[in-house]
Design a protein around this nucleic acid. Sequence first.
DNA 1: GCATATTTGTCCGTATGTATA
DNA 2: CTATACATACGGACAAATATG
Lengths: 216, 216
Amino acid sequence: MNEAQGLGESLTEQVAAQLREQVTGGLLTPGQRLSEVRLAADLAISRNTLREVFRLLTREGLLRHEPNRGVFVAVPSMASILDIYRVRRMIELPALAQAWPRHPAVAQMQAAVRLAEDAGQDWRVIGSANMEFHAAIVALTDSPRLMGFFAQVAAELRLAFGLLDSPELLHAPYVGRNAEILSLLQAGRPAEAAAALETYLGESERTVLAAFARLG
Amino acid sequence: MNEAQGLGESLTEQVAAQLREQVTGGLLTPGQRLSEVRLAADLAISRNTLREVFRLLTREGLLRHEPNRGVFVAVPSMASILDIYRVRRMIELPALAQAWPRHPAVAQMQAAVRLAEDAGQDWRVIGSANMEFHAAIVALTDSPRLMGFFAQVAAELRLAFGLLDSPELLHAPYVGRNAEILSLLQAGRPAEAAAALETYLGESERTVLAAFARLG
DNA sequence: GCATATTTGTCCGTATGTATA
DNA sequence: CTATACATACGGACAAATATG
């Protein structure tokens, strides 16, 4: 039962990462019920271990737990999207504004930009790189708590993206903006970079909300 | 096994709340190892259930999980305190500055102030009321994610308080400040309230760090 | 509205690998 | 290096709650 154990990674963590990927990747439909016995069988783990995974992902906001009824894939609402973008503004804008242009995380930002530029039409890679770019912005703060919180919120946002029909529209237009934000920061103009990011977030939020409204 | 079930609260949640209280209340010493079999016996629950609780509290930052070694009560560091106060500033200051003076959460703030004023010398009640006051400030944002994140960070801070010798010094001087912040907000001067809060946080942080430094 | 099947919640026993005295 | 203790993970069991016919 120990095939390919990731050195120090408990089975619970591995399965949690796997399920997290399936949920945020849109493989599992929001609202869908996750049967303990069935999922445990599919994942080839015991019910007890799966329950531990459920606790983790429920706390991250990706699953919803209804007592004595089971766990379901969380269903994003318009309210949750508004909340998420509000949190993003509150965290990302100050992070960028007070950033040191030679902070190690700038390299991460650059790597994410290059990854997106070289991705061609693969919106899946582009979306992933875009999220890495923003995670790198938060990393500018050197705050483990903010980074963890942002990762959680970003996962919720990916879940919401999965609901929308044309995900490429959510990421593709912003590759260039990310590059612009990066160069402003590298040029020692963090305030302007933050202003550009604010515009970015506003447009992104409007796009998501509009696509969301078309679904009802 | 269903004595005093809190209506819809699973045993895991109940025990999680109980353990959370013991950890933040200083009943359990930071760094202390929590044996599965022993603690499960003490709490009269199964190891499986306890493991679920461990997952929850580990993710909240109150426990630390070392693979194949067990879980330990988290040990606050100076870095974690700096990080916590940074997060508090980032969340609480904007929350107060852009608050609507007639927001429902203002009543919570007022209730917390009264509770602290009527607590006499009971620093335990005062400390609890103080935390409720700041949780109410975050509630002004109507953001469930910020409220959840703050609750988590506040629990970590309580854990750090438990390390210090004279906890009353950490809360008692600030009862009056809370009342001042509240009246500024009620008078429709949120910006000044936020400024007062910033002073408050700065002093509080210095006090905690100083007390912490005396321990090594 | 009732009887029945399903599922969750919780417990127990146990095998195995890992860390430590 | 051996022995011991412990975490990890599994599978089975049963009561209680829920869903189903």
